[in-house]
Amino acid sequence: MSDVVLRAHAVGKRFGGFTALSGIDLEVRAGERLGLIGPNGSGKSTFTNCLAGAFPSHDGSFTFKDAPLAGLKPHQRARQGLARTFQLPRPFRGLTVAENVRVPLSFGGRGAATMESAMACLESVDLAGKAHRMPKELTQVELRRLELARATALQPELLIVDEAMAGLSHTEVDQILALLFRLNEGGTTIIMIEHVMRAVTEFSQRLAVLVAGRKIADGPPADVLALPAVEEAYLGR
């Protein structure tokens, strides 16, 4: 197996006449921490949805762990080790926190779905104390952590974290970052989609920038952020 865990080739997506994404080429190496940034509406979430299988028809192709993803349903991609979080937390509101985590444990096809493994998973995001609460009793930051716990319960090779920091306090951002660093040390490749620049720059080894559905830069964070085009995209609007 090659060093590259995910390869996107000429990925594009149109909604009616509107081109949301076009000609995206991207390679992500195993164990890498990649930051994906861009202004609102630049196509970051569209890219995530194409990759996770939520938009079944798009241009171009994805190769994950040397196998094409085309034709695979979202749950099949999840089972292959491709996990995502949602921008707005989407817990299963009728299930307890522990049961929320038991869903990916039971259906992810990786390891047993015992109460112990669910608790271990919640332990890792500091939610073990609330295992038997309902989601509506959780705070916003706890919901973000539950969202992460549900994604990591799949034991993914690649985790896409979609704006997990928005609206969180400084310490809360640090908590989530620490969690993501721990996961990455365990071998999980992470793509972080984020507006909170402090978090992205602290976390990422590499940055890719989307503007108006196109990738305009890709490289080490310091170099990318120094590019005039990137500055213009962020400040010039």
Partner: peptide, 13 residues
């Protein structure tokens, strides 16, 4: 029942 897309993302067929 609670969220079909989130269920898919959690590996539920």
């Amino acid at each position: 029942r609670d969220d079909e897309a989130a269920a898919e993302a959690a590996g539920v067929p």
